[in-house]
Amino acid sequence: MARIQSGEASEAEEQELQALLDQYPELLKTILVVDALQLAPEMKATADEMRMHGWQQLQPHIDDAPATSRTGIRRLLIRTGWAAAILVTGLLSYNWWLHNTWKTLATTSTKDSLLLPDGSRVFLNANTTLRYARNYGKGSRELILDNGEAYFEVAAQQNNPFTVHAAAVDIKVLGTAFNVHRSANGQVDVFVTSGSVKAENKSGKSMVLHAGAQATSSDKTPDIKPVSAPTANVLAWKTNRLVFNQMRLSEVAVVLANYYQLDVVVTDSIVSNKVLQATFNNKPLDEVLDVIGKALNVNITKKHKTLEFHQ
């Protein structure tokens, strides 16, 4: 292939390559794909991975081929060098590459959203990393939530399940909307807003959740446990609405920590047990803290990314 592109190939070599293309029709697609990969230096590792994987699959076919065919294939690879080797083995690697590589969407301090090829939409909270397969929608719809929180609005496809992998939990649906939060400690919380989902962990435990239901699981425990009274603030990060209905300050602190991406500390039980009744619609942190401090008569110290509630 390299010799043909440079104009140095003989007529016999051109005929030999054409015969190979006739034998492997998908090779032309692979040539285009690998050429695109080689144009981008950052894709060299991916191209090398494709070549090595494909060569492992190609070698048995060469060994089983008649002696004349083996000689022809090997001669072609030697003549055209590594470029041809990548192209030939890429034929066998192309589908493997699609099935085993992922596209990544990562957020930092801002939120983001993604429209997937099947019409499903994903909303990502800040500090969230999500991956989805390059062949997403072609036989499977799989995503991996590496960290953070995401809300999924899934386009219904009866014969093509939608699966989110989060830590030790797999969430499987056909068409619904739900929220998944994956904590740094391996805890996964699932909340369903419409339809139903099946949550299953690596221990084989599973639970079907319907609209309005919430469940939690952790790497440290084998069970998936229902949450009896889902908090009104599960989707606060998406709706920008915080609702504290006679909520203890210790629980308020957890909500604020997640919503504003902070560490929140409550120093003693007297402050922890104070109860807050308030609703905030898309308010900045300083305004929320000012209201809480005056309503509950508590002091709030803010240092960098840490809040402390104290007497």
Rank of each mutant, 00 (worst) to 15 (best):
D170Q: 14
A167R: 12
V173G: 10
N127T: 12
L124A: 05
E153D: 15
G186Y: 01
S140I: 05
Q158G: 01
Y132K: 06
A126G: 10
L143C: 02
R131V: 00
Y151V: 09
R131M: 10
G137H: 01
E149D: 12
D170S: 15
V173H: 01
G186S: 06
N179V: 03
F123S: 15
Y151D: 03
N179L: 05
G139F: 00
V154R: 11
L143F: 02
L143R: 05
L145D: 03
P161R: 04
G119D: 09
D170N: 15
R121I: 08
N160S: 15
G186M: 03
L115H: 12
A168Y: 00
T176M: 02
D170A: 15
S183P: 01
N179S: 13
V164I: 15
I171D: 05
Y136V: 07
N185I: 00
A168F: 02
L174E: 02
A167F: 00
D189S: 10
T108V: 04
H181I: 04
K111Y: 02
G186E: 01
G175W: 03
E142G: 05
E149Q: 15
S183H: 08
L143T: 12
V180K: 07
T110R: 07
E149N: 03
L124K: 03
S140W: 04
L116C: 13
G119E: 08
T128P: 09
S120M: 09
N125E: 06
D189M: 08
A184C: 02
A177E: 11
S109T: 14
A168K: 11
P117V: 02
S183G: 06
Q157V: 09
A167H: 08
D118R: 10
K138T: 05
Q158R: 14
N160C: 08
Y132V: 03
Y151T: 11
F162K: 09
R131F: 03
H165L: 10
S120P: 14
S120R: 12
Q157C: 00
G148V: 01
V154P: 09
A167S: 15
A184P: 02
P161I: 03
R134A: 10
R141V: 07
V164A: 03
G148H: 01
Q187K: 14
N147E: 06
L114K: 13
T129F: 00
N147A: 11
L174P: 08
T129H: 01
D146V: 09
N127V: 02
S140A: 14
G119T: 13
V188K: 05
L130E: 08
V164T: 07
R141Q: 08
E142N: 14
L116R: 12
E153V: 11
P161A: 04
Y151P: 07
T108K: 12
A150G: 06
F152M: 08
N147Q: 14
L130C: 07
D170V: 00
Q158P: 08
R131G: 03
